[in-house]
């Protein structure tokens, strides 16, 4: 039997093996670092059928969130305002604006404006808006400074772990109910301290078991 391979083959095999092992380690580590959930920008920002500016309405004009989203403290769903709500003002203000053409059409045809939903939770996750709002969780906690956004985009990951972070340790995110829609609220004391007092008073106990949300 003759040698099938040259003498240096065994050294080469070990070299290649080592290189592959190091490469795999670096790739795995890199993926873990770059792909870490905390590194993923939510940033979902679809184009809406009407170029509506939250900054103008909620920020500059100072309209309360609940003027339009009027069910957030009563229902599990947050209402998207109907065209009628918009027309309360826009039948007078900027009544002829080209930008608002789709709105007027929808109003006349009695059909909703096809707004694109931005903050979507999966079907298997049950979320109750009123429970959160009435407990004193501000809009800003999940939706960010909408009053500063011309076009709304998603700023929080809305992942399960992100929900749980607050459910496990809610104090810092709880404020008196009257300030829920005040997105730029600045407490004079430690917010966690205020939160703890409210938690005791309202007996708030966010669920951390599976069936709390997956019903």
């Amino acid at each position: 039997m003759a040698q099938l391979f040259p003498k240096k083959i065994d050294l080469m095999i070990r070299g290649v093996g080592l290189a592959v092992a190091i490469g795999a380690g670096v790739t795995a580590g890199g993926m873990l670092l770059l792909h870490h959930p905390k590194k993923i920008e939510p940033g979902y920002q679809p184009t809406q059928p009407i170029a509506y500016s939250h900054k103008l309405h909620a920020g500059n004009l100072g309209m309360d969130c609940m003027y339009c989203h009027n069910t957030v403290d009563k229902s599990s769903y947050a209402a998207i305002p109907s065209s009628q709500t918009c027309m309360n003002c826009h039948s007078k203000v900027k009544a002829q604006s080209v930008v608002l053409e789709p709105l007027r059409k929808s109003y006349e045809a009695n059909e909703p404006v096809p707004w694109v939903k931005i903050h979507r939770l999966p079907d298997y996750a049950f979320f109750n808006h009123s429970a959160h709002v009435n407990s004193g969780v501000s809009c800003v906690t999940c939706h960010g400074r909408v009053d500063q956004m011309i076009e709304v985009k998603q700023v929080q990951p809305l992942t399960m772990a992100w929900c749980l972070e607050c459910h496990r340790n809610p104090a810092a995110h709880i404020r008196p109910a009257e300030f829920v829609t005040k997105l730029d609220w600045k407490p004079e004391r430690d917010p966690a301290e205020i939160g703890r007092e409210i938690i005791v008073k309202k007996k708030i106990n966010p669920p951390v078991n599976c069936s709390g949300c997956h019903r």
């Binding site: 792909h35 959930p37 905390k38 993923i40 990951p157 992942t159 399960m160 772990a161 992100w162």
Partner: peptide
């Protein structure tokens, strides 16, 4: 592996 979407 901690999955990248749910961080759980």
């Amino acid at each position: 592996i901690p999955n990248e979407f749910l961080d759980m």
